[in-house]
Amino acid sequence: MTQQDTTRASVFAAHPGRGEEKSRFQIDYAAFGPLLALAILIGLGAILNPTFISIDNLENVLARSAFIGIIAIGATFVITSGGIDLSVGSMAAFSAATMIVVMNAAAPLASSGYAAIAAGVAAGFLVTVLAGLVNGAAITLGRIEPFIVTLGMMGILRSLVTWFADGGALTLDFAVRELYRPVYFGGVLGLSWPVIAFLAMALLGDFVLRRTVFGRHIAAIGSSEDVARYSAIKVSRIKLLAYVVQGVCVAIAVFLYVPRLGSATPSTGLLWELEAIAAVIIGGTLLKGGRGRIWGTVVGVLILSLISNLLNLTSIVSPYLNGAMQGAVVIIAVLLQRPSQR
């Protein structure tokens, strides 16, 4: 896409998707590609091991994907605005560490375990929103490249977790954990809470990105910051908000993550940022900004989780080659959506 095209796409942002379609009957490869890759993957998996498509297995994979998924929904906003956030993995670890420390400290003082959980969750949200604000402010007010700001934040938060945990593990108080456990393992109508939260966040994210003024401004800024500025869009404020949205998404993911294993270690959330970014790009969001697809991101996350699940369920490939398989599928999935970007 040339610069001109990109700019035009933002003008058409009022009718998302339509600006890119050349005719009504042409297949939109960008939307279709990731779905096709997902379908192939599921088909292949079902042939290799029938367990793969069992409800229990899919439920496991969905629940596991929920953390990266919710974080990736936030990343879709940041990337659509033309930015990038490399600090989400460390932010998740830091938020988890904060939640656990506060819950453990509050448990003996609070009247009920639920109060301790509420205090911990509030603290966890507070730190991620703050981290998002600092990222956003350094990028907009400080005029530093997002890559550098968030790379710095990644290092700072990761070290803080290691320092908090003294290099070991922070473990949630046993009684609190038993109360909190159903948030990951419970659910309604056969769906676990993480899956429900993932779905709800996707619906909400899609609505905000496509149907609200905020979402359209994000895409417009990602297409061309200058044009957006001339159009009287408050560029700095919107960009800053995108990083705060990312922070909130991380906090929601961590809220679901902590009850799973009840611990945070220096390796918690390691490389989640790359998984989230990969999922966003597989889903058809442009890395340079201007076009975001929340549902594409959801499909991207599922593709990534299903690959590692499938590799665990089979013994065809040497486990040394897991990374190579994942890398290959990522590239193929993105290749499948190339025609529309020509």
């Binding site: 290099g167 070991g168 270690t265 390796s267």
Partner: peptide, 9 residues
């Protein structure tokens, strides 16, 4: 570096 539990110890 303390990147997993044992290394933390």
């Amino acid at each position: 570096a303390a990147t997993h539990g044992w290394a933390g110890g």
